[in-house]
Simulated assay, not measured.
Amino acid sequence: MAVQNDPLALKLTPEMILSAYAHGIFPMAESAEASDLFWVDPDERGIMPLDGFYVSKSMKKLMRRDHFEVRVDTNFLAVITNCADKRSDSDETWINNEIIELYHMLFRMGYCHTVEVWRQGNLVGGLYGIAIGGAFFGESMFHKERDASKIALAHLVDRLNVGGFELLDTQFITNHLRSLGGVEIPREQYHERLHNALKIKGDFYRLDGGGTSEACLQSTSQMS
Rank of each mutant, 00 (worst) to 15 (best):
S19E: 15
S19M: 13
S19N: 15
S19D: 15
A20N: 06
A20S: 15
A20C: 04
A20W: 00
Y21S: 12
Y21R: 09
Y21Q: 13
Y21F: 11
Y21M: 04
A22C: 15
A22V: 05
A22G: 13
A22F: 04
H23P: 07
H23T: 15
H23L: 11
H23S: 09
H23W: 11
G24K: 03
G24R: 08
I25K: 14
I25N: 08
I25V: 14
F26I: 06
F26G: 03
P27R: 02
P27K: 02
P27E: 02
M28C: 14
M28L: 13
M28D: 08
M28F: 10
M28A: 11
A29W: 01
A29V: 03
A29P: 00
E30F: 12
E30I: 04
S31A: 06
S31W: 01
A32S: 12
A32L: 01
A32F: 05
E33S: 14
E33D: 15
E33A: 14
E33Q: 15
A34F: 02
A34S: 13
A34V: 00
A34D: 07
S35A: 11
S35W: 05
D36G: 10
D36C: 06
D36V: 08
L37D: 01
L37R: 03
L37C: 03
F38Q: 04
F38V: 05
F38W: 02
F38T: 04
F38M: 03
W39I: 02
W39S: 09
W39T: 06
V40L: 03
V40W: 00
V40G: 09
V40P: 02
V40Y: 12
D41L: 15
P42G: 04
D43C: 07
D43T: 08
D43V: 06
E44G: 07
R45I: 00
R45K: 08
G46Q: 01
G46L: 01
G46I: 11
G46R: 00
M48A: 10
M48R: 04
M48C: 06
M48T: 12
P49V: 12
L50N: 10
L50C: 05
L50Q: 05
L50S: 06
G52A: 11
F53G: 02
F53E: 03
Y54F: 13
Y54K: 15
Y54L: 13
V55D: 02
V55I: 14
V55A: 13
V55F: 02
